[in-house]
Design a protein around this nucleic acid. Sequence first.
DNA 1: AAATTACTGTTATTTTCATAACAATGTTAT
DNA 2: ATAACATTGTTATGAAAATAACAGTAATTT
Lengths: 207, 207
Amino acid sequence: MNKKLPDKTVERLSQYRRALLNYLSGGKQHIFSHEIANLLHITAVQVRRDLMLIGYTGTLRQGYDVKELIEIIGKIIDTRDGQKVAVIGIGNLGRSIMGYFSGKRTRLSIVAAFDNNPEKTDKIYAGVQCYHIDQMAEIIKKEGISIAVISVPGEEAVKVAETLVMTGIRGILNFSPKPLNVPAHVYLQEYDMITMLEKIAYFAKKG
Amino acid sequence: MNKKLPDKTVERLSQYRRALLNYLSGGKQHIFSHEIANLLHITAVQVRRDLMLIGYTGTLRQGYDVKELIEIIGKIIDTRDGQKVAVIGIGNLGRSIMGYFSGKRTRLSIVAAFDNNPEKTDKIYAGVQCYHIDQMAEIIKKEGISIAVISVPGEEAVKVAETLVMTGIRGILNFSPKPLNVPAHVYLQEYDMITMLEKIAYFAKKG
DNA sequence: AAATTACTGTTATTTTCATAACAATGTTAT
DNA sequence: ATAACATTGTTATGAAAATAACAGTAATTT
Ligand SMILES: NC(=O)c1ccc[n+]([C@@H]2O[C@H](COP(=O)([O-])OP(=O)(O)OC[C@H]3O[C@@H](n4cnc5c(N)ncnc54)[C@H](O)[C@@H]3O)[C@@H](O)[C@H]2O)c1
Ligand SMILES: NC(=O)c1ccc[n+]([C@@H]2O[C@H](COP(=O)([O-])OP(=O)(O)OC[C@H]3O[C@@H](n4cnc5c(N)ncnc54)[C@H](O)[C@@H]3O)[C@@H](O)[C@H]2O)c1
């Protein structure tokens, strides 16, 4: 169970868990693979295969124990003490993300923000302190922050990423349109909105 | 060239184009596959394979004609008159996206926004009119909008998507965490930030 | 002129992911 | 008791994507 799961399976596990938490509030204690599948608009086989990969096994004709499954997924995705997240670049997008996560209760908590604009630093956004970028390395190490969200302009993103790698960061979510280059031990997820929209445009084309 | 390209190839084409536009401003007229590859931190083979798929061929020992390639990619991704985009839900994220795209000049233009909050409707955000959600179907049809960005709360997203499908929308980018279900002729791209962060968390875990 | 080099374009292989097929088994219906 | 059913878990197959291998060729070097 310690071996690395496929990327897509991990994505779906996260979604299963949220769907299940929601389902649980309806009072039901068991759920069939095809019910989970319906919640996510995928197939029941996909669900069973994912659960097989994490070694969780349900009961024949009864399905899966919802609470148990939620817990197992938690053991896989979460660490015991949770992981800490920093947001770099408190512009429109950065602030929007901070606001969004301040409500959520997950094992991931945004504990620091960084910006290079003195008008934005030393203030609190969505309950989180924003420091000057020069303090980033120090604070990331001190706080044990392991995940960073990059929402600075493209030109700055490369520098920021380099610094992050030096601090020993382990995961990066990059919203800038600049492709980043990080060593293999840092998990990088790029999200380039323009690319996504242009891809949609291509597939939305008539003909 | 009319046959559908692989999803990932289309993504990269969008990125090649932006990298090339940038490269062009440096004055160079030709570029090698390995130079394109370096810009994106991918391999040269990947680049050549993608270009093969779109049927563009460079010159031996000289590489690719940058302008020509930019133009070819444009012919693939863009339509002659561009496509129109609507943003549904003008909250923190929706406004952030509107602001972001108002600067950019692409063949994709955000031409309308929709919200159900009367305090937000009938105003202009980033140069774009925000209408009441009840007018959505009408305006999408009238304006010929083909792509929608969904940034309403999860509970609302399903309804919104159903309406969008009925208007004949062709592509959807969904930021809500609710998995949507659309017919095959609508291209759907989901982006669930929590899932992405949890995935990063999993791969960032020590062990 | 022959060999080497530096590229492109294509085919072959591998890897990752999704889907299909089916065996196993307890439950319900007859 | 037997047959039909509903559901899980696993193996087999297929599809999409990335990578590797290599053939072709013009320019450059020897
Ligand atoms: N706003 C969006 O919806 C959106 C959408 C897609 C992509 N993006 C990308 O996300 C990034 C941020 O977008 P935005 O709209 O929030 O831009 P923004 O200009 O509003 O914010 C950028 C922030 O980064 C800060 N910054 C700049 N350089 C910095 C540095 N070296 N160190 C620390 N902070 C620095 C700025 O002070 C500013 O607060 C950009 O790369 C943009 O391309 C944004
Ligand atoms: N803010 C973020 O950075 C962020 C990050 C990840 C995901 N999301 C997702 O994006 C969506 C929007 O997030 P947000 O932070 O902007 O929320 P928000 O509450 O600030 O904005 C939601 C907007 O949608 C409008 N709305 C609600 N119901 C509507 C309906 N039926 N029709 C039209 N408009 C409607 C509201 O009036 C509001 O303006 C949510 O689904 C959220 O989960 C947001």
